Simulated assay, not measured.
Amino acid sequence: MAAEKLFKQDFSELTRKKAKLKAIIVAGATIWLFLMACVIYLFIFKTKSAIPFIAILTAIPITFLPAIKSLIDINKEIKLRNQN
């Protein structure tokens, strides 16, 4: 279903979606790394206050899996169109 939708879109729409997804993933990874550094700091200096954040930090990368999958699909579609 998703591949069919990608097939119907223009090349410019695909490149815009690709750029948007890349920006979202990079921003999310940056925020995640910042939060990871904060949790490490809390864990070192205030041991008990960092424990609830560990579960949150493990869930954040999982929430970006659909965006990464979409980016992979868009890259495949762009590659297919460039070959033809």
Score class of each variant (00 low, 15 high):
V39D: 02
I40C: 12
F53P: 11
P61R: 02
I60H: 04
A37M: 15
P52D: 14
I54L: 11
F64V: 08
I72F: 05
Y41R: 14
A37R: 13
K46R: 03
P52Y: 15
F64T: 07
I68P: 00
L71S: 02
P52T: 13
I68L: 07
F45E: 11
I56F: 05
I62G: 00
D73K: 02
T63S: 07
T47M: 03
T47E: 08
I60E: 02
A59F: 11
A55V: 10
F43N: 03
P66I: 01
I44T: 09
A50C: 05
I68K: 01
I44N: 04
L57Q: 13
I51L: 06
S70E: 00
P61A: 12
I56D: 13
L57D: 13
A37Q: 13
A59I: 04
K48P: 09
L57V: 11
I56C: 13
F43A: 06
F45A: 05
P61F: 08
S49E: 15
L35W: 09
I72C: 05
S70R: 02
Y41A: 12
P61E: 09
A55P: 10
F64Y: 14
I54S: 06
Y41C: 09
I40T: 12
K69E: 03
K46C: 01
I54N: 11
V39N: 03
F45H: 06
D73Y: 10
T58P: 09
P66S: 01
I68C: 00
A55D: 01
I72R: 12
P52V: 13
A59N: 06
D73I: 01
F53M: 05
S49L: 15
Y41Q: 11
I44L: 14
L65R: 10
L35N: 05
A50P: 13
I68Q: 01
M36F: 07
F43M: 07
L57Y: 08
P66R: 03
L42V: 00
I72P: 02
L35I: 10
F53H: 08
C38G: 15
I60P: 07
Y41E: 10
K48D: 11
A55L: 13
I62S: 05
I44V: 14
